[in-house]
Every structure is written in C-alpha cells, then in structure tokens.
C-alpha cells in the first residue's frame, strides 16, 4: 500500500499553490487529489514529478486529457472554474518536455484565464465583505440592545446573549477577513494584467 498523507492548506494565490505542490514534489510527495483545501499526496521518489495547473474550456476536456496523457502527463485532479475546468497535472521530470507551456500564445492564454479567475474571486470576496459590513451597520443598534445590558452605563457592559454575541462578532471578523482577501486578490489580478501586457508586447515586437 502506497504511503499517503493529507494536508490542509488554504491558498488564495494559484502561483503559490503551484510552488507548494512542487516543494512537495521535491520532497517525494506526488499530488493525488484535492478536496476543499485538503491535499492528498502519495509517496514517490524526490524530484520525480513537476505539478502544473491549466485551465481548459469544458468542451475541450476530452481533447486535453488525451493530449496530456499521450505526452506522458498524469491528471491528478480537476475542479470547476466557472466556464472552464482547472486541471492539476503531474509531469514526469524525465519526460521529453517538462515545460508545459512553451510559446508566448499559450502562456498568454493561461495568464488571461488566471486573470479572469482572480477577477471573479475578488468580486465574490468583496461582495461578501460588503454584505457583512452593511449587515453589521444595519443591525448594530439592535444588536447592542439585545446582546448587551445597559449600554449607557459605561463600565457596566454585560453580555446577555453570549452565543448571539459570539456569532455577531464572528460575522464581523468573517467580513473583515473577506475584505482583506478581496484586496489581496485584486492585487493579484492587477499583477496578472501587467504580465498579460508584457507578454502581449513581446509578441507584438515580432509582428
């Protein structure tokens, strides 16, 4: 029975996720599956594989899997990304070509797809943040009355409803986390746009 282990890791940045997966490859752990931020690895030789991510339009799923398999790659996992699928591919280091994307057009297509994914995530986390902030502001006066005793007497604050108060503050913290994540993902989105511009201008030089 193959040695295996499962690790919980939460990534916002896909590029950091790939770096982590390749650190694990270097230690001899090959990605087998991903389920809700739980990464399962199988033991293998160190530095035997390299892991790459790739976005594929749904209608081209079969073509992609066939092409990758023919070229010696292994599909470790796939997940939904809006109109596309996101594939995690293990490429043997000793295969004919370890580089998954070898021309500017395919690199540009990948960066554009990554940029769309980041934009969607930034909007979703910002929306969650906005909902949390507006909800908190809306219910704050009532929440103080319900949860806290004698708010006018400073120093005599007693929490009447501890569970309610905990949930309320958890909601505030959750909203704050969403706001921070949204800002970070938006920064990554801007970085993607810059990289797209760089690759596009490199390609135009040769037109």
């Amino acid at each position: 029975m193959q040695d295996r282990k499962t690790v919980f890791k939460a990534f916002v940045d896909r590029e950091k996720e790939v770096s982590y997966l390749n650190e694990m490859n270097a230690k001899g752990w090959k990605l087998a599956a991903v389920r809700f931020s739980f990464y399962t690895f199988y033991k293998t030789e160190p530095n035997k594989y390299k892991t790459v991510l790739h976005f594929v339009k749904r209608e081209y799923q079969t073509t992609f899997v066939r092409t990758v398999t023919e070229c010696g790659g292994e599909i470790a996992h796939q997940s939904n990304e809006g109109k596309c699928l996101l594939f995690y591919i293990n490429v043997p280091v000793d295969s004919e070509n370890i580089d998954f994307l070898t021309d500017n057009q395919s690199k540009l297509d990948f960066k554009k797809r990554l940029s769309i994914s980041r934009k969607r995530e930034a909007i979703a986390t910002f929306a969650a943040f906005a909902v949390a902030v507006s909800s908190v502001l809306y219910v704050l006066p009532a929440a103080i009355k319900v949860l806290v005793h004698d708010p006018e007497k400073f120093g005599e604050i007693v929490v009447k409803e501890p569970i309610g108060a905990t949930l309320f503050f958890a909601f505030i913290i959750g909203g704050t986390v969403c706001g921070i994540m949204s800002a970070y993902i938006f920064k990554l989105y801007c970085r993607s746009k810059k990289e797209i511009k760089t690759i596009s201008s490199e390609m135009k030089i040769f037109e």
């Binding site: 790739h54 339009k57 092409t67 990758v68 023919e70 004919e96 998954f100 070898t102 021309d103 395919s106």
Partner: peptide, 29 residues
C-alpha cells in the same frame, strides 16, 4: 496523434522546438 505531432516537429527543427503538452493542446484546439 498529438504526441506524434510533437515528435515530428522536434525532429524537423533538430530539437529547437520542443513543444509542451499545454502548448500543443492549445494550438490543436
């Protein structure tokens, strides 16, 4: 088939163009 296309191109260009699977898939699509 896909892999044969990669090999053929590598042979034609004396190894100068060694296409990745992702690039090949993108071009074929």
């Amino acid at each position: 088939h896909g892999y044969a296309i990669m090999q053929n191109i590598k042979a034609l260009t004396n190894g100068r163009i060694n296409m990745g699977a992702g690039t090949l898939y993108g071009a074929l699509s």
